[in-house]
Design a protein around this nucleic acid. Structure first.
Length: 560
RNA sequence: GUGAGCGUAGCUCAGCCGGUAGAGCAUCGGUCUGUGGAACCGAGGGUCGUGGGUUCAAAUCCCAUCGCUCACCCCA
């Protein structure tokens, strides 16, 4: 018996560690993945029937695109988005990370070593800045200049410190030196903290972000490719994952999926809004999303005679009833009064109900737009509930706002949000006068709701399991499998011979519709025995009869 | 960022007055070499989330930590 050295055991332990999906991300496994594909495929079909066409923007963009469209302070941007610096200066980045740990490596020797690193970092990044390989932004210019200043400042101090460190003198000399050191240290502490600040400000590459939503990307692409010169409004849809670094919850993930659509162009006809809503509800209906509710509102536009005036009025009214509100709402009176209307707290409801409503403060044009939209919805037989408390926080949102909620979702029960954003394209650098409306459906939540309701589609699974036995049956089995697959049937062909009983058992467990039996008999006569697994009915068929039978029984069985 | 609940086999869970880790389902094999879903028999699968403490002895008691879930915050 030999004893394993401890290090080996440790290594083995680390290597055996379980990897798991990152918090807030998950695997969509079969059979659920089929449901997802069906859901997204249905969206494509419905949207394309309204002449929407797919756009596939990249999954990451310049951080500032989102920062601008989301409009929140940079702190929230940094906390809730997945951002990183995109560069190929790994060596410099390592140097910088080391330097940012500086404070923990306090001491004369450490300072002098770090100073060496800092000088090296400064020289290298300065060169890259000059050649443009590090972004030539004002921020970078400032940070690099500041760093050189600080190096100038700290160098002599550092030399003194190192001298003192190796000093071997008398006690009185020692005392004086220590005094000098302490004075020097105070100064150095400040300089080091300034260095940290400047180091943080250096960006070695572009800041990029995993998209938290797709509307900004769609608008960016629209502008970048001059799509306003294409005939008519552009009607675009997208399907794919989004990323937000939030605390996971029921129906809320860090990597989540959306299906969305946008209409961009010069026209803001109410009929466009109505068409978008009709399309959305048609889709929900198609996928069997029951118990849904469409909430509708108009938030006017950002002008003194419209929303801005209303917000001021609302704030004034809220201040009057401030003491009847809880802390969160009190804070929002100043930061974002419209958000107070969102409050779910039961004790605040009576107060909120008495607040002025935006519908009474819309300008004439916005009021008319909303009226016409409601006429259009009536024309299309679309039911909705007007909800004056449904709002959006950002300036570029205009007029139509809507949300769809579904059953079975817990506190995050919105499956779709959308509305008009006539100010966004211009905000992102496009020409003025370009309007937009769109929505985004939360796929995770929509599917969760469908699953909870039990209203699941019958999706085609395995069509035929080929139960072959005996060496002579193998060749015909391979051949017929290929033919059936070419015709689009899902076929399972066991790679090894199985006992016949097992074979049928496996066919059953795999959920096959049919077992195709090929044994010595069939191989000899060139026939196949097709057994329907639901009732055990079976027939001996030749190839063409087999194909005909499967075509007629399995074809055209749509999900819903 | 805040709060609560929960971590034992692939899944659902039992065991928790400390004393050799269990069941059902699932998987694999057998009964059963041309007819599936059943039954019976058997097998594999766990450092009881992780680390530390108390103890002769810890899945069980104590502490810490990590993870999951839900809600708050936020919601583009």
């Amino acid at each position: 018996m030999t004893e394993k050295p401890e290090t080996t055991e440790k290594t083995a332990k680390t290597e055996r560690r379980q990897f798991r999906a990152i918090k807030g991300s998950r695997d969509i496994l079969p059979p659920d993945s089929a449901l997802w594909n069906w859901f997204e495929h249905s969206a494509r079909e419905v949207f394309e029937s309204y002449n929407f066409r797919e756009i596939r923007p990249p999954i990451f963009e310049e951080t500032s695109l989102f920062a601008r469209s989301i409009g929140t302070d940079t702190d929230v941007v940094a906390k809730e988005m997945y951002s990183f610096e995109d560069h190929d200066h790994a060596d410099l980045a390592r140097l910088r990370s080391g330097l940012l740990l500086w404070e923990e490596w306090w001491g004369a020797e450490a300072i002098s070593r770090s100073l060496g690193d800092l000088v090296a970092f400064l020289a290298a990044s300065g060169r890259l800045y000059e050649s443009g390989k590090v972004p030539r932004t004002d921020d970078n210019r400032w940070a690099l200049d500041r760093l050189s200043e600080l190096v100038e400042e700290i160098s002599p101090q550092s030399e003194k410190l190192v001298e003192w460190d190796s000093f071997r003198g008398s006690t009185s000399e020692m005392h004086a030196a220590r005094q000098a050191l302490e004075n020097g240290l105070k100064n150095i502490e400040k300089v080091v903290s300034d260095i940290m600040y400047a180091l943080h400000a250096v960006s070695l590459g572009d800041q990029v972000t995993l998209r938290p939503e797709a509307t900004a990307s769609v608008c960016r692409a629209y502008i970048e490719h001059g799509m306003q010169t294409l005939p008519g409004n552009q009607k675009l849809y997208y399907v794919g994952p989004m990323f937000r670094r939030e605390r996971p919850q029921k129906g809320r993930y860090r990597q989540f999926y959306q299906v969305g659509a946008e209409v961009l162009g010069t026209s803001d006809a109410p009929a466009s809004d109505a068409e978008v809503l009709e399309m959305l509800l048609t889709f929900f209906n198609r996928v069997g999303l029951t118990n849904i509710k469409l909430y509708l509102n108009s938030i006017g536009h950002n002008a003194e005679n419209c929303r801005r005036g209303y917000v001021e009025l609302l704030r004034a009214e809220l201040r009057k009833v401030k003491d009847q509100l809880k802390e969160d709402s009190q804070r929002r009176i100043e930061t974002n009064p419209l958000r107070v209307l969102d409050s779910k707290l039961p004790e605040e409801q009576p107060v909120i109900e008495k607040l002025p409503r935006i519908s009474e403060h819309l300008c004439d044009a916005c009021r008319e737009h909303f009226t016409k939209l409601k006429d259009e919805l009536a024309l299309r037989g679309i039911g909705y509930e007007e909800n004056w408390r449904l709002v959006r926080g950002l300036d570029y949102y205009t007029r139509t706002t809507f949300e769809v909620t579904a059953a079975g979702l817990g506190s995050q029960n919105a499956v779709c949000g959308g509305g008009r954003y006539d100010g966004l394209v211009e905000l992102l650098g496009g020409s003025a006068g370009l309007k937009g409306i769109g929505f985004a459906i939360g796929t995770d939540r929509a599917i969760l709701s469908i699953q909870e309701s039990g209203n699941l589609p019958k999706l085609p699974g395995l069509a035929v399991f080929i139960a072959w036995m005996g060496a002579k049956a193998y060749a015909p089995a391979v051949a017929i499998a290929k033919k059936l697959r070419e015709r689009g049937f899902a076929i399972e062909l066991p790679p090894e011979e199985m006992k016949f009983r097992k074979s049928l058992g496996l066919a059953d467990k795999l959920g096959a519709r049919y077992a195709l039996i090929i044994g010595e008999d069939e191989a000899a006569s060139g026939t196949f025995t097709l057994k329907r697994l639901s009732d055990g009915q079976q027939d001996k068929l030749d190839e063409s009869a087999l194909l005909r039978r499967l075509e007629s029984e399995l074809r055209g069985q749509d999900a819903r």
